[in-house]
Design a protein around this nucleic acid. Structure first.
Length: 682
RNA sequence: GCGCCCGUAGCUCAACGGACAGAGCAACGGACUUCGGAUCCGUAGGUUGGAGGUUCGAAUCCUCUCGGGCGCACCA
């Protein structure tokens, strides 16, 4: 694999440092200088050298003088026009602009391997409509997938379905006891099923707040019943549909999954596999995982006394493994917490953490078990989505691809679950003997919150305490949130209004397509521009805006570039290949103030690969989002500053067109990774 | 009590330990007889919550402190 241009320069510097100062540095820092007159690549190597030489010789050295010494032995690296020493000890490299434009040097190289990555995202409880908080998860996850694929990785996308949890049980309780509906009635309920469940779920929550004893008697029994159905017994599996309660659960889950997939498809988000929790139970994944865990001495313990008596627990890292549970744990007061994590309850059932460990072992191909699969959907473009199944597929069914067995995995899960995920990761790292635990990652992100004002706008009442707070997190449990489809509808409606007035000549279908593309761009960029650790405080005005730092602004830039190219093609103007120009001519056009400005755009566009690399390495799509916006700004400046079609000088015009194409292509590529389409016009 | 995240312009957010802390929004003032103004330019706005420390260099790392969020279930 060819190493990147930056890597080559680094090696050169390290080599010269070695011969000149007899010093072996492992690496040397590189940065993009803050101002163009500082060159294109800066190495603050003088400082590092001074420090290291002082450590080894005890003598103080001048960083700038050291950089100067280094400069004299660098020679003339290919692609570099000059090297300057600047500031208190920087080594600044100036790229050969014309050469670079004609044959761009690779600033970053894709870290392509043949290994399979498994990315899990979305994973919404299948009992209600998706809200904006869920969209943040899905858009982050989907963009990570696209980002990894852009760096050449093989990625398998999972959307985990917790079809046996309390949330589903609560809605089943609502249908069965509050509404007295039959399985068939639930199946045939007309209208938006996910919206119906959204309201029902809220009503169930209210009901349980008023009748707490009902929760214990009814809902928990529903939960147990659902779990029982999927737990293999000596008589084998029971068909869940045979029973009214589990039948309702099955219907709810299937109908909601269908809604969620449709919602996500609007944003261009798809999945390869939907692993269901029921199959983790019926496939006895936990039993196998438990065996593996117990083979590791001291990793898990069956408590014989204390508050966790009878449970299988995993010791917190902070506590010594072999130590018995603290004696005073029975007398724990309210303010003292037990750090250990229960994996198996005293009644023998497994907790979420236990199931998650088993599931993730399977993801890495370390469980020694597999699911059965059924094809769920097949799109016209051939893309298939599969779902796990409790039964062997009938003969003649399409055979599934090989799922699981990834070299590593990334799970997009809210940061409020960090504590839990720490245990999952700890278990996984121990069981897989993989010291590179960075590749088993919980991608934590913060929630989308609402202001009390926005909640009031939704017509939801708050307690006095909450109304005084600055922001309140979305909660499906309380029906507190912006429903995903509502927001997408609103965005598309706003965009449609604009498109219809700007382009009355287009037919309705095309107007709607463009409005859809713009709405999705606004939403996806809005969710991506914040770094993962930032709590997004939702603001209608900001989210519905198409001006400034928004997705539509990015699209508009590409549309402008495309429009110039169309006009150019139609104009019959004489066109030359950029490569046909003498490089001295290009060089002179890229000199001076004008040249600096043009070069700035060329060089920024070339750094897209660096941004992609950085975003992948940090698993932070916001890095790419911010970069793309910067590139679009720069492009718009260029667009405004230079008339391309009316440029009389053909050499200059050729250069401008070349730059426009490069920048436009770069922007389009970045948008593709963010899942944003380029409309035909805007 | 313990753990994690966050305090940067009026508001919302950026800034691999590097050179003078940058954008958008809001405000105000401008832009060629348009390759489309969903654009561009300018003005104004900052002791990076506070105090110490490490470093040639700190918004960034360490300690303390103040303020906010989230966790710490035989729920997920």
């Amino acid at each position: 694999m060819p190493s990147s241009f930056i890597q080559t320069l680094k090696s050169l510097i390290l080599d010269r440092v070695h011969t000149l100062f007899d010093l072996k540095l492992e690496d040397v820092a590189v940065e993009i200088p803050p101002r163009p007159n500082f060159g294109d690549l800066a190495f603050p190597v003088g400082f590092e050298l001074a420090k290291r030489l002082r450590e080894s010789t005890g003598q103080k050295q001048n960083p700038r003088a050291l950089a100067e010494q280094l400069r004299t032995v660098l020679g003339h690296p290919p692609g570099i026009s000059k090297v300057e020493v600047a500031g208190p000890g920087y080594l600044n490299f100036f790229l050969d602009r014309a050469d670079f434009l004609l044959t761009p040097l690779p600033l970053a190289t894709p870290s392509a391997t043949d290994e399979k990555a498994i990315v899990e995202h979305t994973s919404i409880n299948p009992n209600k409509a998706a809200h904006l908080g869920h969209l943040r998860n899905a858009v982050l996850g989907d963009t990570l997938v696209r980002l990894l694929r852009a760096s050449g990785a093989r990625v398998e996308v999972h959307n985990y379905i917790d079809n046996t949890g309390v949330q589903v049980a609560d809605v089943v309780f609502g249908f069965y006891w509050l509404e007295k509906k039959s399985k068939t009635e639930v199946q045939n309920l007309p209208g938006r099923f996910d919206y119906y469940c959204w309201d029902l779920y809220t009503r169930v929550g209210d009901y349980f707040r008023q009748n707490p004893e009902e929760r214990l008697r009814r809902s928990v029994s529903v939960l147990r019943e659902i779990e029982e159905r999927y737990r293999p017994s000596v008589t084998g599996l029971v068909n869940p549909l045979d029973n009214e309660i589990t039948g309702i659960a099955e219907v709810v889950v299937n109908r909601i999954i269908d809604c969620h997939l449709k919602t996500m498809a609007r944003l261009g988000i798809r999945y390869d596999l939907l692993p269901r929790e029921s199959e983790i139970l019926s496939g006895r994944f936990w039993e196998r995982a438990k065996e593996l865990l117990q083979e590791k001495h001291g990793l898990v313990v069956r408590e014989t006394e204390g508050r966790n008596q009878g449970c299988l627990v995993m010791r917190a890292e902070s506590e010594p493994r072999d130590a018995p549970a603290k004696a005073d744990k029975t007398s724990d007061s309210d303010e003292e917490y037990d750090q250990d994590k229960i994996l198996e309850r005293s009644d023998g059932t497994v907790t979420y953490t236990g199931k998650d460990i088993a599931y993730h072992l399977w993801k890495l191909g370390k469980l020694g078990k597999d699911f059965c699969y059924a094809q769920l959907t097949k799109d016209p473009d051939g893309q298939q989505t599969w779902i796990t199944s409790s039964i062997q597929p009938p003969p003649g069914s399409p055979s599934p691809p090989s799922f699981g067995g990834g070299a590593y995995y990334l799970s997009v899960i809210g940061s409020e679950q960090s504590y839990l995920q720490k245990f999952v990761k700890q278990a996984l790292v121990e069981l897989t003997h993989d010291p590179s635990d960075a590749r088993i990652a919980h991608i934590a992100y913060e929630k989308v919150a609402l202001t009390p004002a926005a909640i009031a706008e939704l017509g939801i009442e708050l307690s006095e305490e909450e109304a005084g707070r600055q922001r309140i997190g979305m909660s499906g449990r309380r029906g507190l949130g912006i429903k995903a489809d509502d927001l997408i509808d609103r965005l598309e409606a706003c965009a449609f209004e604009e498109v219809a007035t700007r382009h009355p000549e287009l037919d309705d279908a095309r107007q709607r397509l463009i409005a859809h593309q713009i709405g999705v761009a606004a939403l996806r960029y809005f969710l991506l521009k914040f770094s993962r650790t930032t709590v997004i405080v939702f603001d209608f005005k900001e989210a519905l805006s198409f001006d400034g730092e928004t997705g539509p602004y990015l699209q508009y830039s590409v549309v402008r570039a495309n429009s110039v190219l169309e006009k150019l093609a139609a104009s019959g103007l004489e066109q030359l290949e950029l490569a046909s120009l003498p490089s001295e001519q290009i060089a002179s056009l890229l000199t001076g103030d004008d040249g600096d400005e043009l070069w700035g755009l060329i060089y920024l566009g070339a750094r897209l690969d660096l941004a992609i690399e950085e975003a992948s390495a940090n698993l932070e799509p916001a890095i790419l989002a911010k970069f793309t916006y910067q590139l679009a700004q720069r492009f718009n400046l260029f667009y405004h500053h230079y008339r391309i079609l009316s440029e009389p000088d053909i050499a200059r015009r050729t250069l401008l067109i070349g730059i426009l194409k490069t920048a436009g292509n770069g922007l389009a590529r970045a948008l593709e990774i963010m899942g944003i389409e380029v409309p035909e016009c805007m």
